[in-house]
Amino acid sequence: MPEPSNREITLAIRIDPARHTQLTWIADLRGRSLKAECFDAVDAWIEAAKNDPDLMARANAARAAIEEEARTRQAAIDNLFTATPPPPPDDDETDDLALVPEESRTDDAAASEATEGDQPQSSRRGRGRRGQQAEGGSADS
């Protein structure tokens, strides 16, 4: 919700002619401006809302959610500079194999790594190809 300020905000509303006539007559009979009548109506509506138990329950729930989010953010900022991040999970065996010297690996582990590394490279282009194409270029340009 925006914070109140000292400046006024212009609020333009469309109102049907019958209501406008009624508000104008009420203001005239009371010897007040239409603006003053509208302010009084808005103030009365706000006061009624303050006494609405359903609306108050919603406001309290919103306040609790805001406070919980603030606590979560504060904890995240506090942990940003003080807590040590946990180590990465050890889910992938292939990462572990890269750390073990090849001589000490079992035949199965070395074979599986060799099979993974021997994938055909036909789908990948070499670095020189793009440069060769650029150098060779078409004679039409």
Rank of each mutant, 00 (worst) to 15 (best):
L80H: 11
A36I: 04
F81P: 00
T72N: 15
G117T: 02
E135F: 12
R30V: 01
D90T: 07
R129G: 01
A139L: 13
D52C: 14
E103H: 15
A76S: 04
A114W: 10
M56C: 05
I26D: 15
N51M: 03
S33N: 04
R19L: 12
K35F: 04
D90M: 06
R7D: 08
A75T: 05
A139G: 08
L34P: 01
P87K: 12
R32K: 10
G128M: 11
N6V: 02
A65F: 01
A18S: 08
N60T: 04
E135Q: 14
E113F: 03
D91L: 01
A61P: 03
N79P: 01
S33W: 09
Q132R: 09
E8M: 06
A12D: 07
E8I: 00
E116I: 09
E67K: 08
A59M: 13
D92M: 00
L55V: 02
M56R: 14
P120R: 06
D52I: 07
D43L: 06
E8L: 09
G137H: 12
A134D: 00
R32E: 11
E3N: 14
I77F: 06
Q121L: 15
G131K: 10
L11V: 15
Q132F: 07
I46D: 07
A61G: 11
P101S: 11
W25R: 00
A98L: 14
R130E: 09
T106K: 08
P86R: 05
D118K: 06
